[in-house]
Design a protein around this nucleic acid. Structure first.
Lengths: 336, 336
DNA sequence: CAGCGCAATCGAAGCGCTTCGACACACGCA
DNA sequence: TGCGTGTGTCGAAGCGCTTCGATTGCGCTG
């Protein structure tokens, strides 16, 4: 079943069929209808390889998904799924690359023209893949922001602003000493962009408002969370507000706080940076800055498509944080 | 940079370069060396589309990942990653399809020759995609086992045997009344193969051994787990053994049991069906049947590759369960 | 020593599509 | 009436690779 079969069936030339399909030249309505009907009747599907060869476009993009210690898989998958969905909306498929494939994987899929562009998740401040991406002639979009963004297209939640927003919210409620319960230590050790930027925003806003801070990296295991929280509240008894930037830790954290005989939000306010579904499932529902995975994934695809059609210069897109008050943050308790 | 450039550089014809690359005809060691050197010097990478067009092989396989309510994303990703890794080991890439794309997605990637074969995860007992898969001329492998396996290639842990093994272990320890804390209700409602098979094995073995059983589907949220466990132990005070087939529930379940003042394993034995990392991270470490995601993913790829080279008939591969005793199951407590 | 078989290589056809230039025709305008 | 302009369609030339059959030169065998 080839394009020439369709052409014969519709009584036109193969090139006409091609133009009907691509819309790159005008075709009379009557011809278009006949061709589309033939395609339908014959169940024609163009050969992807032939198309890629002739047009120099594969209509596939590569997505590098993170598989590193400390990442929260369900959230990473939210990003991945939204990339796939958005890509499909724009007639593209997604080739899955793992972190393990590394830079050679990027070179391979680009060098063999297997993909038209690349989306990279979980970018580090000084990411080893960036020189490779720069060296490729293929466009790419980073989900996350490295230190040097020169010539790169990046998109992410504005984590610095998110950190600031959490502090501002707590400060406005009167809290004078707050702590950030953060990502697992390994995430900071490899200098993952989003984690570092959150801490920076958290500290900067607190400094500007004269609020005292502590930052506690935190492993996800419930026991580790309990230990961190207990240790924290023990060492810093004045802490009345917590910012949690660690999805799997939110449940265990609330349990641990309760286990210490403290009520949320009466004795301790908690603000999370997390996807809405995680923030709303807890009891009490968490005041949170939502992590708009869907929007970020969709934006990454849009930006990549723009680069494929070479519109505009590279740019860094930081989505403004939205803090939604729920039931976990309240005014600072009166001093005992 | 084309194959003819390499050929010129090495002083041979393009077809010789091709044969060096594919190994489909014998090439003298001297020529092979020259060609490989030229490839290296020039940094040649063959054009994937051209290759696919000429050879009728894309060296890409499609993987349909599950995104349904109730599935445990990290475990699903373990499967996916092992599929990608195994595929790469065999010179194939992986195209990511989401459940949402449905049957039309399968038809599309097969019909356009975008992929050579398809791997489908999370198969239901009466899966809607199976007729489509049967109708395609492309080979496919299911991870999971439907009711009618005629003509299909499937691979999975033998969940029925796993259910049996858990019961057998508890029964051997003297337990006479046990319960299965299962997957979320939605998983049973859509009749997911692995969940149903576990229940069947659990019930059959218990019946044969004269052990009384209860089956409790269970949502993953900690509160829901606590409610299920409390309700269960309340209604069935004679239960001294639990089989847990629900990854995210194991932590909350242990907490809930403890919350009821019962010790594991002194008062209540627990056996899990879960990946080893989940079973070993708890306190106490769980006696468990491991879920060999890596092996299943690898097998799925092997089976698909065999079908691509059309070796052998379709077959259902059920990996035998391995029950590893750890610290969560002990002899049934003496009656009060 | 003619003839054979085998190993190593080449040339050319063709995979199924896109795209460029050419062409035919209709229309409006001078 | 003739000419430019624009629209719709066609034909042919590739895109870069694989693969088939043909060819060459060699060492053997009978």
């Amino acid at each position: 079943m080839r394009i020439s079969d369709v052409a014969r069936h519709a009584g036109v030339s193969p090139s006409t069929v091609s133009y009907v399909l691509s819309g790159k030249r005008s075709i009379s309505p009557a011809t278009r209808r006949r061709v589309l009907e033939s395609i339908d009747v014959l169940g024609y599907q163009p050969h992807a390889g032939a198309r890629a060869l002739a047009s120099n476009r594969s209509n596939v993009i590569a997505l590098v998904v993170p598989l590193r210690p400390g990442i929260h898989v369900p959230v990473a998958m939210q990003f991945a799924v939204s990339v796939v969905t958005s890509a499909r909306d724009r007639e593209h498929d997604v080739l899955l690359l793992t972190q393990a494939e590394g830079e050679s994987g990027l070179r391979r899929v680009a060098g063999t023209s297997m993909v038209d562009g690349i989306i990279v998740m979980d970018v580090e401040v000084d990411d080893a893949r960036i020189p490779t991406l720069r060296s490729l002639s293929h466009p790419s979009v980073l989900i996350g922001v490295p230190a040097d963004t020169e010539g790169l297209t990046c998109v992410d939640l504005d984590f610095e602003a998110a950190g600031r927003a959490c502090v501002a919210h707590l400060a406005a409620l009167g809290h004078r000493e707050i702590a950030l319960v953060g990502q697992p230590p390994s995430v900071y050790e490899r200098r993952t962009g989003f984690a570092e930027r959150t801490v920076a925003g958290f500290r900067a806003e607190a400094h500007e408002r004269g609020v005292e801070t502590t930052v506690v990296p935190c492993d996800a295991a419930p026991a580790a969370v309990a230990a961190s929280v207990t240790g924290l509240l023990d060492e810093r008894p004045g802490v009345t507000g917590l910012v949690v930037h660690n999805e799997p830790a939110v449940g265990p954290l609330l349990d641990a706080v309760r286990g210490l005989g403290r009520e949320v939000p009466a004795d301790l306010s908690v603000v999370a940076i997390a996807p809405d579904d995680i923030a709303t499932e807890t009891s009490p529902p968490l005041t949170s800055v939502s992590l708009p995975a869907e929007e970020v994934g969709g934006r990454a695809v849009s930006l990549l498509m723009d680069k494929l059609d070479d519109f505009g210069p590279p740019e860094v897109t930081l989505l403004p944080p939205r803090l939604v008050p729920r039931a976990s943050a309240a005014a600072r308790p009166a001093l005992p």
